[in-house]
Amino acid sequence: MKAVLLAAGKGKRLRPATEARPKPLLPIAGSTLFEYNLSVISDFPNVYVVVSYGKELFQELADGYGFTPVDQGEPMGTGHAVLKLGEVTRDDLLLIYSDIYLPPGTREKILSYTDRYDHVVAVTPVDRPWEFGVVELEDGLLKRIVEKPPKGEEPSNLIIAGAFFLSQTIFDHVREVGPSPRGEIELTDALTRAAKEGERIGVVEISPWVDAGRPDDFLRAQKLLLDDVIEGKRSPPKGYRIEGDLLISGDVDLSNSEVSGPSALGECLLAKSKVGPYSYLEHHSEITHCVVSNSIIMRRSKLSFSSIESSLITDGSVIITSDLRRVVTAPSVRVEGCSLSEEKLWENKFCPT
């Protein structure tokens, strides 16, 4: 069996933050979603990572983390990613999406059923199933997957959670299915085809789960990851140690600031500020005279005399005397004297006093 992470997406719904890095490599809870999910499969002798957007950044990580990048080229769906994998392996796969939060123990649940079924699919209950691939079951087995059905017509509230055991027959099924209405080759269509041909597809239900594709959901994933680490359900990220309910890297001076956990602090400059809970200050960020909560402040960003809540402040941004709520900035944006809510900032913004 080979282990696989899919990491080819662009992260459009998180723009402009993903102008700096692909979504799986955005900082979160002292690490990245890519590294958190990679740690789940890192003991496999062969780990493949399907890449496209920002592939050079994954290539830089490959040797240190011991995985083999597989270039998908122009991404044409999850089934297309499996087709590309078929060029390098035809073995059974443990396949995980790299940009989701999966609860600890998901891998073990899936692998415990591999001797009973031809394939195993992780599913999770959600309030808005029509936004996802929805599972229909029959006699406890997967019958079909309906991609984003009309609201009210979904066959259940269970959706595909982005973690699978796939036996070798999956390569034949993805080759046989045609493009979906949105022009992509879908892994979900291949699994539906397998079920129609009589293959037994088991499901394992997991929760909590987060598709970290939107800013609010990305921050929710951070909350769950921080809780997991502080509660001992996951190991601390590389280079971090646990001090109370904080993850700390290096030597951070907390003598004149107040930090509430769970939060993560990289090697940052922190002065006369209040941070947390559920915040991450990445390496080389500078925060002075600020209040930061439920946010991620990315590397080389400089904040002063500002209040930041539920926001993603991207690499190299400068925020001065501003009040930001649910804001996402592009890299190196400068904001001064502004009170903003629920905005995406692609360029500098200066507000009159």
Score class of each variant (00 low, 15 high):
M1N: 04
K2F: 07
K2C: 07
V4P: 02
L6R: 06
L6I: 15
A7N: 09
G9P: 05
G11P: 02
R15H: 05
P22R: 03
K23C: 01
D43S: 14
F44G: 03
P45G: 12
V47R: 13
Y48M: 05
V51P: 05
G54A: 04
E56W: 01
L57W: 00
D63H: 06
Y65F: 09
G73N: 02
G73F: 07
E74L: 12
P75Q: 09
G79H: 11
L94V: 14
L95E: 10
Y101E: 13
P104H: 12
G105H: 06
I110A: 03
I110S: 03
R116H: 07
D118S: 12
D118W: 03
H119P: 04
V123D: 01
V134P: 02
K143G: 02
R144S: 14
E147I: 08
E153V: 04
L158K: 00
L158W: 00
L158R: 00
T169Y: 06
S180R: 07
S180V: 09
P181V: 13
I185G: 00
L187K: 11
A190M: 12
L191H: 11
T192Q: 05
V203L: 14
V204L: 05
P215Q: 11
D216F: 08
D216R: 14
D217P: 01
R220D: 03
A221D: 07
K223G: 06
K223C: 08
I230D: 04
E231C: 04
E231V: 09
G232P: 14
S235A: 09
E243Y: 02
L246M: 13
I248D: 10
S249Q: 15
G250H: 07
D251E: 15
D253Y: 08
S257N: 06
V259T: 11
A271H: 14
K272V: 11
Y278K: 01
L281R: 05
L281Q: 04
E282G: 03
H283K: 12
S285R: 11
I287R: 00
V291I: 15
V291W: 10
V292W: 04
V292R: 02
V292C: 09
M298K: 01
R299C: 14
R300M: 11
S301D: 10
S301I: 08
S304A: 06
S304L: 03
S306M: 08
I313D: 09
G316E: 06
L324G: 02
R325Y: 14
R326Y: 10
A330V: 06
G337W: 03
G337M: 04
S339L: 08
L340W: 03
S341R: 15
E347A: 00
C351R: 00
P352L: 04
